[in-house]
Amino acid sequence: MVRQTARDAAVLEVLAQQYGLPQDVLASVLGVSLSRASGLVSRWKQAGWARAGQIDGGARWVWPSRVMARELLGWDPGPWMPRPGCVAHVRAVGALRLHRVGLDVGRWESHRALAHQAAEMARAAQAMRSVHVPDGVQVMRDGRRLLVQVELSLRARSVYLEPAPTDGRADWPQGLLADVASRARELECMGVVWWCPPQVVAPLEAVMSEFAARSSVRRARSGAVLPAGLRWAVKSLAEVPCWRPGPS
């Protein structure tokens, strides 16, 4: 019988919340060699706590078994294993979380948990409207909350922010940034931090600046009491160890 240590329990809980992690990210946060991390994963597999496999060209992946994930999350997440089309994003978000808060599970609300909560609320309310689910919410040491987005490639500008009307209609900024702002307020966040590769930082900062300016004008001109503006920031994933396979 394999005895579960406190470290095992902490890492497995993060794995369950983040879907899974590549073993080089695991080695980095634990401060051990890749071979040592592989040995830990072998123990977890032997105990039935985890599964592992080669998914992409990087390090092998590890993810909790369905039984373990259900035990740690408190609900049945269904079957899951990494797919080549999603592993780059799952890796980046997991590496970012560990870079920002380590194994402190109380300081991060995961996409998996937030998606489950949103689905449960929609089911209870019989709501048809879907809500934006961020990649996470980071809880600062003083209790303040930051909504976290991770973007690995730049989308069309109109996806983030629709052009301002030119026919005299009131400007009500729409697009992904507006959806994110609305969700940030619902989740009681004081700001939004968008993490992306270095080449995406400047274009995202530009569209965020336009959104902030247009939103500020709308608040000033509106007779209604509108929420105060959120704090917005764009940061480079270059500071995050192991956010992509190979040297970061």
Rank of each mutant, 00 (worst) to 15 (best):
Q46W: 06
Q46F: 05
A47R: 02
A47C: 03
A47F: 00
G48N: 03
G48V: 00
G48P: 02
G48L: 01
W49A: 07
W49P: 03
A50F: 04
R51K: 12
R51D: 13
R51G: 08
A52D: 14
G53E: 11
G53D: 12
Q54T: 13
Q54H: 14
I55F: 00
I55V: 15
D56E: 10
D56T: 06
G57E: 15
G57W: 09
G57Q: 15
G57P: 10
G57M: 13
G58R: 02
A59D: 05
A59C: 07
A59N: 05
R60L: 07
P64H: 11
P64W: 06
P64Q: 12
S65I: 07
S65T: 15
R66F: 05
M68S: 13
M68W: 10
M68E: 15
A69W: 09
A69R: 12
A69Y: 09
R70Y: 04
R70I: 04
E71Y: 02
E71G: 05
L72R: 13
L72D: 03
G74T: 11
W75V: 07
W75K: 11
D76Y: 05
P77G: 12
P77A: 12
G78C: 09
G78W: 06
G78V: 07
G78R: 10
P79I: 12
P79G: 14
W80I: 10
M81I: 08
M81R: 15
P82G: 07
P82Y: 01
R83C: 02
R83N: 09
R83G: 06
P84W: 00
P84F: 00
P84H: 06
P84M: 04
P84K: 08
P84A: 08
G85R: 12
G85C: 04
G85E: 10
G85L: 07
V87I: 12
V87D: 02
A88H: 00
H89R: 03
V90M: 10
V90P: 02
V90S: 09
R91K: 07
R91T: 02
R91A: 02
A92W: 01
V93F: 00
V93C: 04
V93K: 00
